[in-house]
């Protein structure tokens, strides 16, 4: 097939995806806004908390100024049009524009999530391969029991245990935050950042590596019992050659998909991990926003996290098309494939 066809196909695909993300975001704004409107949160109360004595008349004036007395639909469209102009509002808690907070916090969270994402992917895939190759033997049984146990353990509990062991008892890692206290931002070294990142990232990686490992194990077992592996053995290929030629090739695809689709769990997990480790990321910000009724920040993070999880799924989808030849290459004789 020609590259032109490929381009056209990819073009059609990305158009479809754009439409999909637009509708998804629109739906998210509607639901999120409706939920916040129905909640007993009083934004004026939250606003005046830090200001001091404010009379009822002044409160009413603020409410009127903000348009809180307008019908919800009108308020929604006011908010949406501001959002479309790139104005996400000002955080009541941090007294900073929401966009600035998200940008700043997300960099911290991104470092945390990507580290744990890589860790869980590598550890999970390796463990899964080991278990699959040794299936039914004692090593497989021990690792599998461990994985099942880990996937049932809550993240925050695991984080607390890690803190107790590695930070408090052994003193290897700092107890919290993303950088040392009392050091100017510009003076913080990469090593110090990594040192602060290690324990939360490890904790966060524990959420998903067990499931990656178990899935990889099952897929590898399917592959090793397949006809083509039997044929490879009939041709005198040993286990390592079979793994190199057929094993990884057939197992990596589902593992990658799973890994990219785990962005949502990663985000959910980061909320807990960041709170346990007092790590100043987006997850900590969103729980603070929730607890303090910081409506603008809450809505901003909701939309942002929707976009983030969608990107993960989108990447998984695109990767599948690039890596899997059954999707990438069309049938010969001009027969039309899916799409």
């Amino acid at each position: 097939m020609t590259s032109l066809q490929t381009l056209r196909r990819l073009g059609g695909r990305s158009g479809k995806q754009l439409l999909r993300v637009a509708t998804l975001l629109l739906a998210t704004t509607v639901v999120a806004f409706a939920l916040v409107s129905l909640s007993p949160v009083d934004p004026v109360q939250q606003y005046v908390l830090g200001v001091g004595n404010v009379s009822m008349e002044q409160r009413a004036a603020i409410a009127d100024y903000w348009g809180l007395n307008d019908p919800p639909v009108q308020r929604y469209f006011l908010w949406l049009s501001a959002l479309l102009r790139g104005d996400m509002g000002t955080s009541l808690l941090y007294r900073q524009p929401v966009a600035v907070i998200i940008r700043e916090r997300f960099l911290n969270t991104l470092a945390l999530m990507m580290t744990s994402w890589l860790l869980s992917g590598l550890i999970g895939f390796t463990l899964g391969c080991v278990m699959g190759l040794r299936r039914g033997r004692w090593l497989d049984r021990v690792l599998r029991a461990l994985c099942l146990m880990l996937s049932s353990v809550p993240t925050f509990w695991l984080g607390l245990v890690f803190l107790l062991i590695f930070s408090v008892a052994l003193g290897w890692f700092p107890i919290g935050l993303s950088r040392p206290i009392g050091v100017a931002n510009a003076d913080v070294t990469f090593g110090q950042r990594l040192h602060h990142l290690a324990l939360p990232a490890l904790t966060l990686s524990f959420i998903s590596f067990a499931s990656v490992a178990l899935h990889t194990r099952q897929k590898l077992i399917d592959v090793l019992e397949s006809d083509y592996v039997l044929f490879a053995r009939a041709r005198g290929e040993n286990t390592w050659t079979i793994m190199k030629r057929h094993g990884f090739r057939n197992v990596i695809l589902p593992a990658l998909t799973l890994q990219f689709a785990s962005f949502s769990e990663l985000f959910g997990g980061s909320v807990l991990a960041e709170n346990v480790f007092s790590y100043p990321g987006l997850g900590a910000a969103v729980s603070a926003a929730g607890l303090n009724s910081d409506v603008p920040l809450l809505l901003g993070v909701t939309i942002f996290s929707t976009l983030f999880v969608f990107s993960g799924n989108l990447i998984a989808d695109i990767l599948y098309g690039v890596i899997d030849p059954r999707i990438r290459e069309e049938r010969p004789h001009g027969q039309s494939n899916r799409d």
């Binding site: 397949s226 006809d227 083509y228 039997l230 044929f231 490879a232 053995r233 009939a234 041709r235 005198g236 290929e237 030629r245 057929h246 090739r249 057939n250 695809l253 899997d324 030849p325 059954r326």
Partner: peptide
């Protein structure tokens, strides 16, 4: 059998499922 399979003794399998779908 380990030495001979693939070099001296060859199998012609039944169906396309004996080919790796991704190779």
């Amino acid at each position: 059998q380990k030495q001979l399979c693939g070099s001296e003794i060859a199998l012609i399998p039944q169906s396309v499922t004996y080919l790796d779908p991704l190779m």
